[in-house]
Nucleic acid binder design. Sequence first.
DNA 1: CAGAGAACGTAGCGAATGCTACATAACTCG
DNA 2: CGAGTTATGTAGCATTCGCTACGTTCTCTG
Lengths: 189, 189
Amino acid sequence: MQRRDVLAELATDYVLEHGVIGLSLRPLAAAIGTSDRMLVYHFASKDALVAEVIGRSNARSLEVLRQLPPAPSVAAGVLALWRAMSDPQLDRCQRVYTQAAALGLLGQEPYRDVVRASNAEWSRAVATYLTSCGAAAARSVRIVRLVDATIMGLHLDLSVETPVGVDKAVRDLAAAAQRISDGDQSESR
Amino acid sequence: MQRRDVLAELATDYVLEHGVIGLSLRPLAAAIGTSDRMLVYHFASKDALVAEVIGRSNARSLEVLRQLPPAPSVAAGVLALWRAMSDPQLDRCQRVYTQAAALGLLGQEPYRDVVRASNAEWSRAVATYLTSCGAAAARSVRIVRLVDATIMGLHLDLSVETPVGVDKAVRDLAAAAQRISDGDQSESR
DNA sequence: CAGAGAACGTAGCGAATGCTACATAACTCG
DNA sequence: CGAGTTATGTAGCATTCGCTACGTTCTCTG
């Protein structure tokens, strides 16, 4: 394996632990046994390095998601998805993504392209998964929109405090997803 | 009004436009007609200043939310809440909150206390609002958990791209909230 | 073996960071 | 008026930042 790839993977490990926001080259380089000089040499700039790291973090997420065994129903699939995303490994990837997205919320947005691409790929993968759980293909994107946003919001809540009732909210979400898949037209023409 | 309050309000305006993440004292000071020297003098440190700004930003959110007229149903209340939070003014406050929360996701968390307090206050206010829309008081916190997280997640999505189907997701959310309020026990024992 | 290209170390540049020391002005109140 | 608190300006310190210039080692290939 090329040196560049090794460094990229090590840097990804480091970022998954320390985040993207305050990141600076020298501590990162020291932690993975190289120098800021070499990081810039291999990745051209800090922003390019971080962008690649974000991409790799999201690639790891996708890898886990794609190996998630299908559940017997959409509701069960949502619960399985929640459990999978609550695993520390995947949770860290999601946190990195959230930090990258939050950077673009106001003012500067150095990682816009990677974040966009990651978001699109992730949405597609979740749709594929929920379809494998029996979601009507025509409705899966609609379900994904709701499920993905809610899981992300709940995880952000969980990072702030450890609120009661999250499990219940997840079950409510699963039920809502199931209803949409089953063809509920009541309130959403 | 004390000079300190004036500066705090001006700083809040500035942060609502430029975010908390890359913030540095000198550009902020220059923009609001003072110096970094004076900011540290009045607020003791940068972190203390930013913490206060985050608090004020969330106070503005609460002010708007508390003046939101009750809707005739829970579903309508969720839609009204969504519309209110999509207003640029309130949206910016939410973005600042998200950035502050995202800072604490990995590694450092300088604004933990303010974020926690803001989150708690906000949840309570949303619960109060939805109760005024007819939500059963005993179920309002459960509804809030779902609604608030979803709206936050959807707004984060919207900041990344402008995806189709968000409106539909909001209506799905409103319908789900309505069902919970009406006493749906089906999937969430 | 020779040469080329990749990998790396040392040192440092210019800019920006939060914050402080020191002195000065302005205003309030006895 | 005089004293004391509040507000401000100037200058700078120590550190860190991303990045680069320059030179050296290593490895691979012809």
